[in-house]
Computed example of a mutant assay.
Amino acid sequence: MKLSEGIEQAIHSVSMLAGLAPGGLLSAAALAEFHGVSPSYLLKHLQALSQAGILATEPGPKGGYRLARAADAITLLDIVLAIEGPQPAFRCQEIRQRGPNPLPQRYFAQPCGISAAMLRAERAYRDELRRITIAAILADLTVSDDGGITARGCAFLERHGRRARSTTE
């Protein structure tokens, strides 16, 4: 199975936004700069994450993105579904019923064994992605990081982070 580049970019972006201080925002341009990716391509994925309720946005030249919910409430499956859509990776086209010398329909009363196996695998894959939160990924990073990765991200957030407008302004 091949997932789009957008999945990696989305997961890294959500992880970075999890490091913002309360009330903080980060622009799409800053996220793209930090990850060395195309701003227009990343923006498409940030919009999908916003539509899925994973990110919140503040419009305008001083606006940006932040998490819409806590990092422990965002799973990898949430992100994959936001970017790739809910369709299963394998979609049976019932090709067993095509070709020369077609068989009567009674031979196809049961679902295709290949399709059933692929759907079981898809369920297992999705169950695993559902189990892993952004908070868990960040916790794993703190175990393996000697401080360099965290320092790089914190320094970048310090330089590029923005404050959300107050609702009383």
Results as ranks from 00 to 15, higher is better:
residue 67 L to T: 01
residue 123 R to P: 01
residue 2 K to S: 11
residue 38 S to R: 12
residue 32 A to L: 03
residue 56 A to R: 13
residue 24 G to Q: 09
residue 72 D to S: 11
residue 130 R to A: 14
residue 79 I to M: 01
residue 58 E to W: 04
residue 22 P to Q: 09
residue 64 G to M: 05
residue 74 I to T: 04
residue 119 L to A: 12
residue 11 I to D: 07
residue 65 Y to N: 10
residue 78 D to N: 13
residue 50 S to I: 04
residue 9 Q to W: 11
residue 66 R to W: 01
residue 13 S to Q: 00
residue 83 I to W: 00
residue 21 A to G: 08
residue 94 E to P: 09
residue 35 H to E: 13
residue 148 G to L: 06
residue 142 T to E: 15
residue 119 L to H: 14
residue 141 L to Q: 13
residue 42 L to R: 05
residue 69 R to I: 04
residue 31 L to E: 09
residue 127 D to C: 11
residue 7 I to H: 05
residue 75 T to Q: 04
residue 62 K to Q: 15
residue 90 F to E: 03
residue 61 P to S: 14
residue 90 F to I: 04
residue 109 A to P: 02
residue 56 A to E: 15
residue 113 G to H: 08
residue 23 G to N: 09
residue 19 G to V: 00
residue 46 L to A: 02
residue 62 K to M: 14
residue 54 I to N: 04
residue 143 V to H: 10
residue 127 D to S: 14
residue 98 R to W: 13
residue 133 T to A: 03
residue 41 Y to M: 07
residue 127 D to M: 08
residue 51 Q to R: 15
residue 132 I to Y: 06
residue 97 Q to T: 15
residue 13 S to H: 02
residue 84 E to W: 03
residue 81 L to D: 15
residue 133 T to Y: 00
residue 143 V to S: 05
residue 5 E to I: 09
residue 113 G to L: 11
residue 68 A to M: 06
residue 125 Y to D: 09
residue 46 L to G: 01
residue 27 S to Q: 06
residue 112 C to A: 02
residue 19 G to D: 04
residue 21 A to V: 12
residue 31 L to N: 05
residue 4 S to K: 14
residue 85 G to T: 03
residue 53 G to K: 09
residue 41 Y to V: 11
residue 62 K to C: 10
residue 60 G to D: 02
residue 9 Q to C: 05
residue 32 A to D: 06
residue 82 A to P: 05
residue 120 R to C: 07
residue 40 S to T: 13
residue 76 L to W: 03
residue 1 M to E: 11
residue 14 V to C: 07
residue 146 D to C: 10
residue 8 E to V: 14
residue 134 I to N: 01
residue 7 I to L: 11
residue 20 L to K: 04
residue 22 P to I: 14
residue 120 R to Q: 15
residue 71 A to C: 03
residue 128 E to S: 05
residue 97 Q to Y: 10
residue 35 H to P: 00
residue 14 V to W: 01
residue 126 R to P: 01
residue 39 P to T: 11
residue 45 H to A: 06
residue 71 A to I: 00
residue 37 V to W: 06
residue 104 P to E: 03
residue 77 L to D: 08
residue 26 L to P: 01
residue 34 F to A: 11
residue 4 S to H: 11
residue 136 A to N: 01
residue 31 L to V: 11
residue 127 D to V: 07
residue 43 L to P: 00
residue 106 R to N: 07
residue 133 T to S: 15
residue 86 P to A: 13
residue 142 T to R: 15
residue 135 A to K: 12
residue 36 G to N: 03
residue 33 E to R: 15
residue 24 G to W: 01
residue 133 T to H: 04
residue 18 A to D: 01
residue 122 E to P: 00
residue 29 A to L: 12
residue 76 L to E: 11
residue 93 Q to L: 11
residue 107 Y to C: 10
residue 134 I to L: 09
residue 52 A to M: 02
residue 112 C to T: 09
residue 69 R to Y: 05
residue 10 A to D: 01
residue 107 Y to P: 01
residue 121 A to L: 13
residue 35 H to Q: 15
residue 143 V to T: 12
residue 86 P to W: 05
residue 87 Q to I: 06
residue 64 G to C: 04
residue 115 S to W: 11
residue 118 M to W: 02
residue 108 F to M: 05
residue 108 F to R: 01
residue 126 R to S: 05
residue 87 Q to W: 08
residue 5 E to F: 10
